[in-house]
Structures are given as C-alpha cells and as structure tokens.
C-alpha cells in the first residue's frame, strides 16, 4: 500500500514538474477560459444575465476547456516515448491515479480562474460560498474521473484532435445537470444547502462510478 501511494505520488510529481517546466497545458487552459469571456460578453446582453445563465455558462466553459486541454495527458507520454518505461516500472493503477490527481489539479485551477473571471466581468455574486466550493471541488473530481480514462482511450487512436469532446459530452450530461443546478442554488440568496443536497449526491455518485469503472478498465487500455 505504501508502495502504491509512493508510485502514484511519483507519477503525479513528475507531471507537475514537467508542467511547471513547459506550462503548456495550464497556459492553454487558462487562456481558453479568459479568451471565451469576451465572446460571452459580446454575444449576450451583459447586464441581463440571470443566475441560471451564469451557472450554465460557467460550466459550459469549464467542460469545453477540459475537453480541449486534458486530452493531452496520455498523448504526451506517447510522443515522448515514455509509455514503455511506465508500463515496465509501474502498475497501471498507479499511472491512472497519478494522472487523475494531476487532472483534478488542472481542472480545479480552471474552475477557480473561471469563477473569478465571472465575478469580475459578469458581476456574479455568491450567496452560499461553502456550497459553491464543494460544488466546484466535486465537479472537478467527477470531470477528471470521466476525462482521464477517455484521454487514455484516445491516445491509442489515430484521430486525436476532435475525438475527446465527441466521447466525453454524452457521458457528462448527468454531471452537467447537477453542477449547474447546485451552482445556481449557491448564487441564490433565498436558498440553502438542502436545496442542493440531491445534486451533491449525484456528483458524489458520478465521481464514484467514473473512477471505479476507470480503475477496472484501465488495465485493459494501458497494457498491450
């Protein structure tokens, strides 16, 4: 068990270090979020966006940036030719867990950037901060859980660019419905935690289901 944790942490640390060196994924993700802000502001009447629209737009931007940015996590291993090394030295579950942690970290930074951008540009005001933080955290875990396995799948295919959104979006619908509703609840001043309890349960369930099935299936995807 200690061995497993150690291996997982090593993979996670390796990804973070590589990321800090090149800053490829984080920069493209954050710029994606910021670049989409003017699109929203000019496409909509910016004084007249309700809570429902704010939370929906927030999550749609997060989902799209995840679909654009996270597909690289396994492709980069293939391009650098380090897949074989990882296959020999570590167990598949370690690779999966390390990548999952790294993706959660990336999505969390996207979530926080998007949230602040919305507060700054669209006057988004949060009434229940605790609920919003929990929602962002659970949403990030669920999103990373669904994306990590699919990123491993598309690393094995030849058309890597447009494939991830196609595979990802139909699966994410339960997540999207719940996070949008929970975020809307957190923005509403006449609301409370109870109104979002069902959504939080769904989010926990979604993260649980995606991560469990991913761990079960990852062995087959990773090994030849």
């Amino acid at each position: 068990m200690m061995d497993w944790l150690h291996g997982t942490w090593a993979i996670f640390e390796k990804d973070v270090r590589l990321e800090l060196r090149s800053r490829y994924a984080i920069n493209s993700l954050l710029m994606f979020v910021l670049a989409s802000m003017p699109l929203i502001i000019f496409a909509l009447d910016r004084n007249n966006i309700g809570m429902r629209e704010q939370s929906a737009l927030l999550w749609i931007i997060i989902l799209f940036s995840a679909a654009v940015g996270l597909g690289r996590s396994f492709i980069s291993e293939q391009e650098r030719g380090t897949v074989l090394l990882l296959q020999l030295n570590t167990r598949p579950s370690m690779v999966y867990a390390g990548k999952l942690l790294f993706n959660i970290l990336l999505i969390l930074s996207v979530n926080i950037t998007a949230l602040f951008a919305f507060m700054f540009f669209l006057q988004l005001s949060v009434k229940i901060p605790g609920l919003l933080i929990v929602t962002l955290l659970l949403g990030a875990i669920g999103l990373a859980g669904a994306t990590t396995l699919l990123a491993a799948l598309i690393a094995r295919s030849s058309n890597q660019g447009a494939l991830l959104p196609v595979l990802l979006f139909p699966i994410l619908i339960p997540l999207l419905i719940s996070v949008v509703h929970a975020t809307q609840t957190a923005l509403d001043e006449n609301s409370n935690w109870n109104a979002a309890s069902e959504d939080l349960k769904v989010l926990i369930g979604f993260a649980g289901v995606t991560i469990t099935t991913s761990v079960l299936l990852f062995d087959y995807v990773w090994n030849d």
């Binding site: 799948l153 699966i171 619908i173 339960p174 769904v202 289901v209 991913s214 299936l217």
Partner: peptide, 16 residues
C-alpha cells in the same frame, strides 16, 4: 472499454 464506461454512467442519468 468505452462501451462499458458509458454504460456504467447510464443509471445516474436515469436518476437525474
């Protein structure tokens, strides 16, 4: 793997 992964998330959709 994709087929099974997608099938595993369907019950949640039925609930939501």
């Amino acid at each position: 793997a994709y087929n099974l992964f997608a099938s595993a998330t369907l019950p949640l959709l039925l609930y939501v």
